[in-house]
Amino acid sequence: VTLFVALYDYEARTEDDLSFHKGEKFQILNSSEGDWWEARSLTTGETGYIPSNYAAPV
């Protein structure tokens, strides 16, 4: 399992994006889409796309 942590807060701009807060942890589901990764929040259980430059490996 690849775990990442949010470096900044992010507010979803589309219904496919995932809103999150700094410090929140994610499981990365798909990182082959370039700058946007499909991720599941370990806090909320929700799935959506996150900007890859807002996350770092745990």
Score class of each variant (00 low, 15 high):
Val1Gly: 14
Val1Arg: 10
Val1Cys: 14
Val1Ala: 13
Val1Asn: 13
Val1Gln: 13
Val1Lys: 12
Val1Ser: 13
Val1Tyr: 14
Val1Asp: 13
Thr2Asn: 13
Thr2Cys: 14
Thr2Ala: 12
Thr2Tyr: 12
Thr2Met: 14
Leu3Trp: 11
Leu3Phe: 13
Leu3Asn: 05
Leu3Val: 14
Leu3Lys: 04
Leu3Glu: 08
Leu3Tyr: 13
Leu3Met: 11
Leu3Thr: 09
Phe4Trp: 15
Phe4Met: 10
Phe4Val: 11
Phe4Ile: 07
Phe4His: 06
Val5Thr: 06
Ala6Val: 04
Ala6His: 01
Ala6Cys: 04
Ala6Trp: 01
Ala6Arg: 00
Ala6Leu: 03
Leu7Ala: 03
Leu7Asn: 03
Leu7Ser: 03
Leu7Gln: 05
Leu7Gly: 01
Leu7Pro: 02
Leu7His: 03
Leu7Ile: 09
Leu7Thr: 05
Leu7Lys: 06
Tyr8Ile: 07
Tyr8Arg: 09
Tyr8Trp: 11
Tyr8Gly: 05
Tyr8Ala: 08
Tyr8Gln: 08
Tyr8Ser: 06
Asp9Lys: 04
Asp9Thr: 07
Asp9Tyr: 04
Asp9Glu: 05
Asp9Met: 03
Asp9Gln: 05
Asp9Asn: 08
Tyr10Val: 01
Tyr10Asn: 02
Tyr10Met: 02
Tyr10Arg: 04
Tyr10Ala: 01
Tyr10Glu: 00
Tyr10Pro: 00
Tyr10Trp: 10
Tyr10His: 05
Tyr10Thr: 00
Glu11Ser: 10
Glu11Asn: 10
Glu11Val: 14
Glu11Phe: 09
Glu11Gln: 12
Glu11Ile: 14
Ala12Gln: 06
Ala12Tyr: 01
Ala12Trp: 02
Ala12Arg: 09
Ala12Leu: 02
Ala12Phe: 02
Ala12Lys: 09
Ala12Glu: 04
Arg13Cys: 13
Arg13Trp: 08
Arg13Tyr: 07
Thr14Ser: 14
Thr14Gln: 11
Thr14Cys: 15
Thr14Asn: 14
Thr14Tyr: 15
Thr14Gly: 15
Thr14Lys: 14
Thr14Glu: 08
Glu15Ser: 13
Glu15Ala: 13
Glu15Asp: 13
Glu15Met: 10
Glu15Pro: 14
Glu15Phe: 10
Glu15His: 12
Asp16Tyr: 15
Asp16Gln: 14
Asp16Phe: 15
Asp17Pro: 00
Asp17Met: 14
Asp17Phe: 15
Asp17His: 15
Asp17Gly: 15
Asp17Ala: 15
Leu18Gly: 01
Leu18Glu: 00
Leu18Ser: 01
Leu18Trp: 05
Leu18Cys: 03
Leu18Asp: 00
Ser19Leu: 02
Ser19Tyr: 02
Ser19Asn: 06
Ser19Ile: 02
Ser19Lys: 04
Ser19Met: 03
Ser19Val: 03
Phe20Ala: 01
Phe20Cys: 04
Phe20Val: 04
Phe20Asn: 01
Phe20Arg: 00
Phe20Pro: 00
Phe20Ile: 05
Phe20Ser: 02
His21Val: 14
His21Arg: 14
His21Glu: 09
His21Lys: 15
His21Asp: 06
His21Cys: 12
His21Phe: 13
His21Ser: 14
Lys22Phe: 06
Lys22Glu: 07
Lys22Thr: 07
Lys22Ala: 12
Lys22Cys: 08
Lys22Leu: 06
Lys22Met: 07
Gly23Arg: 01
Gly23Thr: 01
Glu24Asn: 05
Glu24Asp: 15
Glu24Ala: 05
Glu24Gly: 02
Glu24Val: 03
Glu24Tyr: 04
Lys25Pro: 06
Lys25Asp: 02
Lys25Met: 15
Lys25Gln: 12
Lys25Phe: 15
Lys25Gly: 05
Lys25Arg: 12
Lys25Ile: 15
Phe26Ser: 00
Phe26Tyr: 01
Gln27Tyr: 14
Gln27Lys: 07
Gln27Pro: 00
Ile28Thr: 01
Ile28Glu: 00
Ile28Phe: 03
Ile28Lys: 03
Ile28Cys: 05
Ile28Arg: 03
Ile28Ala: 02
Leu29Trp: 07
Leu29Ile: 12
Leu29Thr: 06
Leu29Pro: 05
Leu29Cys: 10
Leu29His: 05
Leu29Met: 09
Leu29Arg: 04
Leu29Asp: 04
Leu29Ser: 05
Leu29Ala: 05
Asn30Gln: 09
Asn30Met: 07
Asn30Thr: 08
Asn30His: 08
Asn30Arg: 07
Asn30Lys: 09
Asn30Leu: 06
Asn30Ile: 07
Ser31His: 11
Ser31Thr: 14
Ser31Asp: 12
Ser31Arg: 13
Ser31Ile: 13
Ser31Leu: 13
Ser31Phe: 15
Ser32Ala: 12
Ser32Cys: 12
Ser32Gln: 11
Ser32Asn: 11
Ser32Gly: 12
Ser32Val: 11
Ser32Pro: 12
Glu33Ile: 11
Glu33Met: 14
Glu33Gly: 14
Glu33Cys: 12
Glu33Val: 11
Gly34Lys: 13
Gly34Phe: 09
Gly34Asn: 13
Gly34His: 11
Gly34Trp: 08
Gly34Ser: 13
Gly34Ala: 13
Asp35Ile: 10
Asp35Phe: 12
Asp35Lys: 09
Asp35Met: 10
Asp35Gly: 11
Asp35Cys: 11
Asp35Gln: 10
Asp35Asn: 09
Trp36Pro: 04
Trp36Ile: 07
Trp36Gly: 03
Trp36His: 07
Trp36Phe: 10
Trp36Ala: 05
Trp36Cys: 07
Trp37Gly: 00
Trp37Thr: 03
Trp37Cys: 03
Trp37Phe: 08
Trp37Pro: 00
Trp37Ala: 02
Trp37Val: 07
Glu38Asp: 05
Glu38Tyr: 15
Glu38Arg: 09
Ala39Phe: 02
Ala39Ser: 03
Ala39Leu: 02
Ala39Asp: 01
Ala39Val: 15
Arg40Gln: 11
Arg40Ile: 14
Arg40Trp: 08
Arg40Cys: 08
Arg40Asn: 05
Arg40Ala: 06
Arg40His: 09
Arg40Thr: 14
Arg40Phe: 11
Ser41Met: 08
Ser41Gln: 05
Ser41Ala: 07
Ser41His: 08
Ser41Pro: 02
Ser41Arg: 13
Ser41Ile: 09
Leu42Gly: 03
Leu42Arg: 00
Leu42Glu: 09
Leu42Thr: 07
Leu42Met: 12
Leu42Val: 10
Leu42His: 05
Thr43Ile: 10
Thr43Leu: 13
Thr43Lys: 12
Thr43Val: 10
Thr43Cys: 12
Thr43Tyr: 09
Thr43Arg: 12
Thr43Phe: 08
Thr44Ala: 01
Thr44Gln: 01
Thr44Val: 00
Gly45Trp: 06
Gly45Tyr: 06
Glu46Gln: 14
Glu46Leu: 15
Glu46Asn: 12
Glu46Gly: 07
Glu46Tyr: 10
Thr47Glu: 08
Thr47Cys: 10
Thr47Leu: 09
Thr47Tyr: 09
Thr47Gln: 10
Thr47His: 08
Thr47Ala: 07
Gly48Phe: 04
Gly48Tyr: 04
Gly48Glu: 00
Gly48Trp: 03
Gly48Cys: 05
Gly48Met: 02
Gly48Ala: 03
Tyr49Asn: 09
Tyr49Thr: 07
Tyr49Lys: 14
Tyr49Val: 07
Tyr49His: 08
Ile50Gly: 01
Ile50Trp: 00
Ile50Ser: 00
Ile50Cys: 02
Ile50Leu: 04
Pro51Ile: 03
Pro51Gly: 03
Pro51Asp: 05
Pro51Ser: 05
Pro51His: 07
Pro51Lys: 06
Pro51Leu: 07
Ser52Glu: 04
Ser52Ala: 14
Ser52Arg: 11
Ser52Trp: 13
Ser52Met: 09
Ser52Pro: 07
Ser52Ile: 11
Asn53Leu: 10
Asn53Thr: 11
Asn53Asp: 10
Asn53Phe: 12
Asn53Arg: 11
Asn53His: 13
Tyr54Arg: 04
Tyr54Asp: 02
Tyr54Ser: 15
Tyr54Asn: 04
Tyr54Gln: 04
Tyr54His: 08
Tyr54Lys: 04
Ala55Phe: 15
Ala55Arg: 01
Ala55Gln: 04
Ala55Pro: 02
Ala55Trp: 05
Ala55Val: 15
Ala55Thr: 12
Ala55Tyr: 04
Ala56Thr: 09
Ala56Phe: 08
Ala56Gln: 10
Ala56Leu: 08
Ala56Ser: 10
Ala56His: 08
Pro57Arg: 05
Pro57Ala: 09
Pro57Glu: 08
Pro57Thr: 05
Pro57Met: 08
Val58Asn: 06
Val58Gly: 05
Val58Cys: 10
Val58Phe: 11
Val58Lys: 03
